[in-house]
Design a protein around this nucleic acid. Structure first.
Length: 134
RNA sequence: CCAGUCGGCCGGGCGGCCGCGGGCGCAAGCUGGAAACGGCGCGUUCGAGGAAAGUCCGGGCUCCAUGCGGAAACGGCGGCGGGUAACGCCCGCCGAGAGUAAUCUCAGGGAUAGCGCCACAGAGAAUAGUCUGCCCUCCUUCGCCAAGGCUUCGGAGGGUGAGGGUGAAACGGUGGGGUAAGAGCCCACCGCGCCGACCGUAAGGAAGGCGGCACGGCAAGCCCCGCCGGGAGCAAGACCGAAUAGGGAUGCUUGGGGCCUUGAGCUCCAGCCCGCCGCAGGGGCGCAUCCGGGUAGGUCGCGAGAACCGCUCAGCAAUGGGCGGUCCAGAGGAAUGGUCGCCCAUCCUGAAAAGGUGGACAAAACCCGGCUUACAGGCCGACUGGCAUU
């Protein structure tokens, strides 16, 4: 490994999740990814995981969250933007999707989001997002 | 062998590779630090369930309330005995009901404490009752006659509670006697009620005797009796505690005037500030150190116990005693995973070989004891009935 991988920090607090929720958002197949630059920056990449009750019972939610965690572990250091926080939201197909397809979806979403984030925080907030945000 | 009843147990296995959380250890390495000690890292070890679920009962623990005891109200429970920390749970037994049987089911205290209700149907539904009937007397009427009576239609009065019919239930049943017809009116048996030797700790069982029948059901309508119960919950609760704002104390500093309760108190004017200029209006004007309360956040609570395993003793059992051994998840929006291979079940195709498919229900969150509900498939034991065989 020539370049050191950026460290990954787990998001824990509700406030952190709410902060990221106001940022960019991209859905790809089995995953929905939210991302936003932290104001203080830094080399670390933040990662949080969410599986709502829409996914199913506790067993299914756990499985979805853990698959997202493993996928993020593999892809986030390479495709994530240092200094930004990501929240991976499980969708109904997350627990059962084929593993390579899940990785593809996440990778595609991360690349798209990275481009948005690097273009600037204003550009990340596309107008269609305002309708679906609460 | 087939059909069935009951109880107990398991609930995929093994192995690569890459990861995660807790505990313990660490020579060297990187890193923070004056150090102590941390972080990264390395090693090692442990890391979801029988229901972890529903949150329906019972407890532990914590805080609140509380002088002690009792009662009312409200809620829960309800055969008897035992087990237990406790229970609405468990075991054994009793009673009633179902089944050929093993076995299963039961809100299983009180209906002579009182009130209330008993739909529909039906004449009548609880101090009974005459719709259709049966019988007697009287009146009327038809017919026969041996002149004594017999008989048909209708009406009135009375007797009856037997037959028909209604109903979940009609105020004992069957048979005989009896009678105008009938009726526990009388008799036998059965049922029922009362007493009851004797057996059982008890619920209860019961030989036998007496009674001529009296006493319908619902307490899951109110109620009565007995027993139990203070409330809220780990977001309990304890400790530490930043920034900012506000409170208090001390010290220092201060444009001018007024007031008094003499203090950075109140108030007026000027000045300055609220991006700049003008006008109008509004707001603000100490600093430093320390103290205490609270918020974010953090630490504890937090797992060696009504624990698990084996042997043994007591007991029909639930369970309890003794001895030996084991340490067995703990966190917050972070862990208990991802992926691959082989095997074992499932299902599909197939004559087979084989190929494909793909793993029930469901995941701790303060901890125990129960209950209830969900569950692919499999294993073990005991017992009952039938068939066959010896």
């Amino acid at each position: 490994m020539p370049a050191p991988q950026p460290p990954i920090q787990r998001l824990k607090k509700r406030a952190q999740f709410l902060y990221v929720r106001a940022g960019a958002r991209t859905a790809r197949g089995a995953v929905l990814v939210e991302a936003r630059k932290r104001p203080e920056g830094g080399p670390a990449i933040g990662a949080g995981f969410t599986a709502s009750k829409k996914i199913g019972n506790a067993v299914l939610r756990n499985r979805a969250r853990r698959r997202l965690k493993e996928a993020a572990r593999q892809l986030l250091p390479e495709h994530g933007l240092p200094g930004a926080d990501y929240v991976l939201v499980a969708r109904r197909s997350t627990p059962d999707a084929p593993w390579p397809a899940l990785l593809d979806d996440l990778k595609s979403a991360l690349i798209r989001l990275r481009a948005d984030l690097e273009a600037g925080p204003r550009a990340a907030r596309s107008p269609k997002r305002s309708s679906e945000s609460d």
